[in-house]
Amino acid sequence: MNTIKYLALPLLTATLIMTGCASRKPAAEITTGTTPNSSTTVNTEGLSEDAALNTQNLAGASAKGVTAENKAFLAKRVVHFDYDSSELSNEDYQTLQAHAQFLKANANSKIALMGHTDERGTREYNMALGERRAKSVQSYLVTNGVASNQLEAVSYGKEMPINPGHDEAAWKENRRVELNYEAVPPLLK
């Protein structure tokens, strides 16, 4: 009987982690030809809930806080990390600063910070590392004036690799935080 208790607790914990962190699905990227001030309605019939929300958000994109200087940095939506690290690199500060400026100028903007790892390590360790990476980006943005209610940190661990390879080049691509605008993304046209 005690053996069952000891086996059930880790299984229950893993189940809770999986349903709490991995149940969030990223919105599909959809582009539309509408502009924020157009009176055109966007037909979202037949799209999934996430895709419909993303389509509506793109139709409501904002140019406020977008400058010629920060446009290229706002287009970058991925921050990469070194092996077994949640430390931001110097090259990512300008990207995150541009996103911080945009988010401060657009209080209705919301962004999901989705942490990922490479395939090495246990699932539990990688879920925690992905969360530390997402929280590291979140901390930087909050320190630079972004309201915490505009940010959501989520970890996918090693469950959603960008590159399915099993070498250093693939692992380097997979160690990342994706910045996914869920409401009022930057208008970069």
Rank of each mutant, 00 (worst) to 15 (best):
T40H: 05
L74S: 11
K5F: 08
Y140W: 10
N163M: 09
T19R: 08
A100V: 06
E119C: 05
T55S: 13
E29W: 02
T31H: 07
K25Q: 14
K135I: 12
V177D: 00
S109V: 07
S62I: 15
A153G: 13
V42I: 12
P186G: 08
K172C: 00
K110F: 00
K189H: 10
W171H: 15
K64P: 02
I17Q: 11
K5V: 10
G145N: 09
P164A: 09
E87W: 01
D118Q: 02
L58D: 08
L188D: 03
V142L: 01
G130C: 02
T19Y: 08
N149A: 02
N54R: 15
F81P: 02
N43Q: 05
L187S: 00
V66D: 12
K64L: 15
G60I: 08
N180C: 13
A98Y: 05
V78L: 04
A147S: 12
L88S: 05
T117Q: 01
Y83A: 14
A107T: 14
S62K: 04
R176Y: 06
S148K: 09
T117C: 10
V42Q: 01
A68D: 14
G130Q: 05
I30H: 03
Q56G: 10
S85R: 04
G33S: 11
E131V: 12
A72S: 14
Q150P: 10
V42K: 01
A52C: 11
Y83R: 12
A61N: 09
A51F: 04
S86Y: 15
T67Y: 05
L188I: 08
Y6N: 13
K64C: 04
T40S: 03
L188K: 00
A112Y: 09
R123L: 10
E119I: 01
M127T: 10
Q56R: 15
A68R: 12
I4L: 08
T117M: 01
T15S: 13
N174T: 03
E168A: 15
V146A: 06
A183F: 06
G121T: 00
P164T: 08
D92G: 01
T122Q: 02
L113D: 04
A28M: 07
K64D: 15
H166P: 05
Q101S: 12
K189A: 10
M114L: 14
T31K: 04
G60K: 14
A100R: 02
T13Y: 13
P26I: 15
V146H: 03
K104W: 03
C21N: 15
M160P: 01
A72H: 08
F73S: 07
I162N: 11
L179S: 03
A8Q: 10
V142N: 00
H116Y: 13
L11K: 03
R77C: 05
S136L: 04
L12V: 09
E29C: 03
G157F: 00
A183K: 11
N163P: 03
K110P: 03
V78Y: 10
G33A: 09
I30K: 02
Y93E: 14
P10Y: 04
N70M: 06
P186Y: 15
L187D: 00
N126E: 08
K76C: 09
L7V: 01
D167G: 13
A59L: 14
Q138Y: 02
T35C: 13
R24I: 13
T35W: 03
T122S: 11
L53K: 14
A128E: 03
N54I: 06
K158I: 03
